[in-house]
Design a protein around this nucleic acid. Sequence first.
DNA 1: GAATAAATTGCCCTAATGGCTAATAGATTA
DNA 2: TAATCTATTAGCCATTAGGGCAATTTATTC
Lengths: 225, 225
Amino acid sequence: MVNTEVKPISVIIIEDFKLTRVGLRCALNANDDIDVVAEAEDAVEGLKYIERYKPDVILMDLGLPGMNGIEAMVKCKEMNFDSKIIALTSHDRSEEVISALSSGASAYCMKDIDPNKLADVVRDVSKGVCWLDPVVAQMTLNALPKIENIGILPGKSNLDGRVPLTEREFEVLKHLVSGKSNTEIAKELIVSVHTAKAHVCSILQKMCVNDRVQAAVKAVKEGIV
Amino acid sequence: MVNTEVKPISVIIIEDFKLTRVGLRCALNANDDIDVVAEAEDAVEGLKYIERYKPDVILMDLGLPGMNGIEAMVKCKEMNFDSKIIALTSHDRSEEVISALSSGASAYCMKDIDPNKLADVVRDVSKGVCWLDPVVAQMTLNALPKIENIGILPGKSNLDGRVPLTEREFEVLKHLVSGKSNTEIAKELIVSVHTAKAHVCSILQKMCVNDRVQAAVKAVKEGIV
DNA sequence: GAATAAATTGCCCTAATGGCTAATAGATTA
DNA sequence: TAATCTATTAGCCATTAGGGCAATTTATTC
């Protein structure tokens, strides 16, 4: 899978260790379809280059001195170029992974990645693919909201014995999750408080929970709102 | 990146359209390091083959008749083999993507993928990589819990003006999210109800919300619990 | 037409919640 | 040492929540 376009993929490397930086550059420049246009050893310098070159792909070390990689990514996204970011790191803390991905990274690589593989990742990412290193993939997928409750969505097939919510109840649930009181929900739906309460009660029963907090948390965790 | 191991990657294809099935098999079998060991046209048949062959990788169509791909994946995971699953589909509904990934898929491919690329994905996935098609990557990343609130976690740097929770408050927050009442929280922490209430009140203020439901939802959405 | 389900409203009751002020003891910090 | 922060306790009070029971209207299905 080699990029046969006339235009090579432009890459900027942001990494504080010179040795790693050189290694990355060599590994990538060995490919005709990839062109490392700049290197930076800290985030501030890196952001300058990004603004100047608007690269296709940014290789960003997360453990930078001063402004760290996550902050740099946020700033980078604010600049609104469509550069894709590959987060590079040497550790696999769950919090950092999620932070990186939700801050705009398209890939998460450990630094011990095979250099040839890295070129593949650069190509993938430049096309918009999301690529996650094996050791972090599972923890990331685990952080996704669980959708076990297809059966509770209105109009959906009822897999297990769970009673599905009606359309109206689902509507109430959404307001409930947004933190509205029964009174507010009633106003929103232009019904009496009694009605709102009745709906909430049946929601609690159908969702097998004791109070609205549990209902809200369950709804959010399972991504049904 | 060709697998040079002696043992090729074993693959099972589960796909109802015969034409697509043949296409997949040809595309993959063209690679020496990949071996399509079985094909099935529905989930039940597929699960039998999976049990028999315990393949490295399963190519699973999501739009199967009868038991759909998601259900099949759940059953497959219950069998506890470490087969990796590639979800294949022709559409990109957000709900389906998240469902698939949280049900155990390691990759999500559109059916119009380049056959050569698919072989790469099979290799990646067999090593544990998570690979997401460009069109679905962004929506998946958006579904990740936002960690904007480093400032609210106890002991973390306070980026913006937000007051961080104390350790104790954080402890209370976790109980709150699990749906416990003030009384229950008090019992859990072996303090009076007044104390629990006091903590909840300061949590509400620090999180800038009006009630415990909003606090719980915010906590879950931002992944700080 | 009859049966069923959903949406609506009402009332009763007890318990829980959240806002408010205020006090005390311990730990940490300036 | 003084100041600050935290955890703890307390009481008061208006509002809210949730359970239970019952009734009406509307829509849909058999």
